[in-house]
Simulated scan of single mutants.
Amino acid sequence: MQFQGVLTKMKTEFTEPIEYYLVFENDFINMNQLLDKKISISFVKYECLNCHLDKQIYRQGFCKSCFYEIPQAADWIMRPELSKAHLNEEDRDLAYEKSVQIQPHIVYLALSSDVKVGVTRKAQVPTRWIDQGATQAIEVVEVPNRYLAGITEVALKEHLTDKTNWRKMLTNIIADNNLIEEKDRLDDFLPEEVKPYYLENNKKVYDLNYPVLQYPEKVKSLNLEKTPEFTGILKGIKGQYLIFEDNTVFNVRGSEGYVVSIQLA
């Protein structure tokens, strides 16, 4: 059986374990059903997720010209503290920026390798944690806009990392910190304007379990530009990575905008 389409990040369902779907324009693949099966992935061409032209992907699934023009790739996406829509100030497209920035946001702690602090829209809970491969997560503050979440993250990352060590995450080397205790010690480090939004009584820790039959001992990353054809036996899915029997890992989200052909044995 063969599928072809442009890669976008896998859709997920928060089930036990998490369910993964690779979605193409006219079809989809339930990836959990492919565990222990042989899969062949072939690079066909590029397709920018914005202009849909066959132009080399620059970042985040976009070609270089789109990346520097469209609001979906502006700096405030990666650096929420740069958000200005709440001030009625435009960066690239004020209507879009308001629609994304002026809505409830969560600042959270997650265990994906070490304890990390992060920001997500409330509507993206728990999808954001799944995409990072977190095994646990807890909400620290809930604020009404992206800017407040951003300045909170900036303050807290002086005391915690804001990065996921993807190699540790994929080899399942996870810190065993108590997230409730970690959250409780952060109150004093919050910016003054954010302290009213601190979720003081929140003790809910989300547990996330992934469909992994075998973790790699040492990961080697598949780059479709360097290796346009790859065949392997799927042994697991974690974060946005496919894990194969030979320790190869493939970052689906990192390959957005690549048109691929997928052959199932």
Results as ranks from 00 to 15, higher is better:
30 N>G: 05
161 T>P: 06
232 G>I: 10
211 P>G: 02
5 G>R: 14
90 E>N: 05
18 I>V: 14
109 L>P: 02
167 R>A: 13
181 E>S: 11
170 L>R: 06
103 Q>R: 15
83 S>N: 03
229 E>Q: 15
20 Y>D: 02
249 V>K: 01
151 I>S: 07
86 H>F: 02
107 V>K: 01
156 L>N: 07
253 R>C: 03
230 F>K: 15
246 D>R: 13
42 S>H: 08
165 N>V: 12
147 Y>F: 13
174 I>V: 13
265 A>M: 10
64 K>L: 07
15 T>K: 02
248 T>K: 03
263 Q>A: 13
235 K>H: 02
160 L>D: 08
128 R>L: 04
246 D>H: 12
202 N>L: 04
47 E>S: 15
133 G>D: 03
73 A>L: 00
218 K>A: 14
47 E>W: 02
128 R>G: 04
257 G>Y: 08
251 N>W: 07
173 I>E: 15
124 Q>W: 05
256 E>T: 12
252 V>P: 01
142 E>P: 00
264 L>C: 09
246 D>V: 10
256 E>M: 15
155 A>H: 10
42 S>P: 00
163 K>P: 02
261 S>L: 10
148 L>G: 03
215 Y>D: 12
47 E>M: 11
206 Y>C: 00
224 L>M: 14
262 I>T: 13
29 I>T: 13
94 L>M: 10
262 I>F: 08
23 V>P: 02
65 S>H: 04
156 L>D: 01
137 A>N: 10
190 L>G: 07
162 D>E: 11
235 K>F: 01
1 M>R: 10
256 E>C: 15
251 N>M: 08
220 K>P: 03
113 S>V: 11
110 A>F: 12
70 I>S: 06
175 A>G: 06
85 A>I: 00
190 L>T: 03
188 D>E: 14
236 G>T: 08
10 M>S: 06
54 D>I: 04
145 N>R: 09
215 Y>P: 09
262 I>S: 10
21 Y>L: 15
172 N>I: 12
123 A>W: 00
213 L>S: 07
52 H>N: 05
2 Q>M: 08
205 V>I: 11
243 I>N: 01
3 F>R: 09
19 E>L: 10
74 A>R: 06
202 N>E: 03
139 E>N: 14
109 L>D: 04
109 L>S: 00
181 E>I: 08
112 S>R: 07
4 Q>I: 15
188 D>Q: 13
199 L>P: 05
34 L>S: 08
82 L>A: 06
146 R>D: 13
259 V>G: 05
212 V>D: 10
154 V>G: 00
141 V>M: 03
135 T>W: 00
100 V>C: 07
179 L>A: 05
249 V>F: 03
124 Q>C: 09
174 I>Q: 12
178 N>F: 04
32 N>S: 06
243 I>L: 14
76 W>M: 06
119 V>R: 09
212 V>L: 12
81 E>Y: 15
225 E>P: 00
5 G>S: 14
220 K>E: 13
200 E>S: 14
254 G>Y: 09
219 V>N: 06
24 F>K: 14
147 Y>D: 03
151 I>Q: 07
230 F>C: 08
138 I>F: 08
1 M>N: 09
190 L>P: 03
42 S>T: 11
244 F>R: 06
52 H>Y: 09
49 L>C: 12
225 E>W: 02
262 I>M: 15
78 M>Q: 14
80 P>N: 12
143 V>R: 04
179 L>Y: 09
43 F>D: 03
